[in-house]
Design a binder for these strands. Sequence first.
DNA 1: GCAATTGATGTAATAACATTACATGACGAC
DNA 2: GTCGTCATGTAATGTTATTACATCAATTGC
Lengths: 131, 131
Amino acid sequence: MATPQLTKNQTLVMDALSHSEGPMSAYTILDKLRDHGFRAPLQVYRALDKLQEYGMVHRLESLNAFVACTCPHDHEHDHGVTAFTICEGCGQVTEFHDEAIEQRLSTLTRAQNFKTEKTTIEIRGHCQSCA
Amino acid sequence: MATPQLTKNQTLVMDALSHSEGPMSAYTILDKLRDHGFRAPLQVYRALDKLQEYGMVHRLESLNAFVACTCPHDHEHDHGVTAFTICEGCGQVTEFHDEAIEQRLSTLTRAQNFKTEKTTIEIRGHCQSCA
DNA sequence: GCAATTGATGTAATAACATTACATGACGAC
DNA sequence: GTCGTCATGTAATGTTATTACATCAATTGC
């Protein structure tokens, strides 16, 4: 999907996430953006929905939080399955992609005639520094 | 981990989940168990925590819901990584395990010196009937 | 026996996350 | 200009999860 011009709110949310060290909850983003006129959760959720649609933001299901995509490419093509390691110590999140896993999952879902729409892979643990 | 004798509340929650077609939220479980004396969310969450610890229940992060483990074995040994397909149509959840994926993830996390504690794999889509 | 500890339970209150409903404004197509 | 569409603003509410504190039962050590 081609990334369209972002709206004002989408830009604000994207910037907040980009400049953050780690993942942020919707309400944390809201608080960061109060100075910029944000008043209600919905403003954040609406922007996040679009940004996810554009592939610029990922939702971490196990944290109820959001991160900017760290993928070096632009977002004009699909990157397939996205996986994350999430450090319980420092909160660091690392995004990665792996063709082999993607293939294998595809084989397995195909075997049960399952039509995949979205795949979530999240690995909780401790990073090298926090082990 | 050897499965200990379940307490009264744990048994009630486990039975509720076992007899359910699909995943249930904590609050849905609570409602089902009002007749059995449950009054507060915490009673459910405490039981669920233990049941997950014993490997008898899995949490579906992308649904904020819980399912009984469908693994045919008893729960006295680790089954490694658990993955799920989740149908958006009928709500059916299928649990599966795959050695190849486990190996591959292990290799990848090892490469970043990441110590895995819990792995979440959830595939949202449509099952054969609902496609 | 009987403190002391541990683990399960009960209850209330609150925190954290997310959505519904409805109103308004900006802008291009026609 | 008016219609349709999309972004926005605001309030209210719904859903999920935790904190804090009190009680009770079983076990241990003395």
